[in-house]
Amino acid sequence: MSAKKKVLLKVIILGDSGVGKTSLMNQYVNKKFTNQYKATIGADFLTKEVMIDDKLVTMQIWDTAGQERFQSLGVAFYRGADCCVLVHDLTVPKTFESLEVWRDEFLIQASPRDPDNFPFVVLGNKADLESKRKVTAARATQWCKSKNSIPYHETSAATAQNVEVAFQEIARRALKQEHTEDPIYLPETLTLNANQQNFSNNRPMGPDCAC
């Protein structure tokens, strides 16, 4: 509806259950949108406007809504992602080992045009629990390096440590991806919304309408 063309970036967060995907999202976004999150229901997607090099973009961060728990995320979740964030809990090695699988799963389901250069970001979460750490920074960094140098950040959703920095990087990479992903002309798609319906309710039977 809006006349100004907005840049909308879709970011999805993957990782085993319990690594803190939803918490990271909330820590990052809710500073601005606390009222949008209800603890009683799961998270949907959260949006945040960010400035990247003087450009205002809207980041839409999609939560798995728990559908990852039994490996039951549908292909619709992955479609059109501009960046994929892989999260593990650095106190639980299994969640780190799963990253490989989540990455493969993403590449197959989303089937980006250039899988080798699709932007991922890896977050080792729960960095505040240093005494319980089981996955060393060296081990994580090495894996990331082997996957075409994925950037790696250690974050804490609890203390907000590194969260802002990490998401800045995510937004930047997503924006870069958005520019490269559309080599062919894509016709505009339609979205349905209430505003549009309300608008058209008052639409008189125009002179050009047959009936």
Binding site: I41, G42, A43, D44, A65, G66, Q67, R69, F70, Q71, S72, G74, V75, A76, F77, R79
Partner: peptide, 22 residues
Amino acid sequence: GEVSQGYTRLCAVHRGVYALRT
């Protein structure tokens, strides 16, 4: 198929539990 997945997401957001292959 995307439309039904949209509804499953809404369900999951409202604490619905999903298990494929079951």
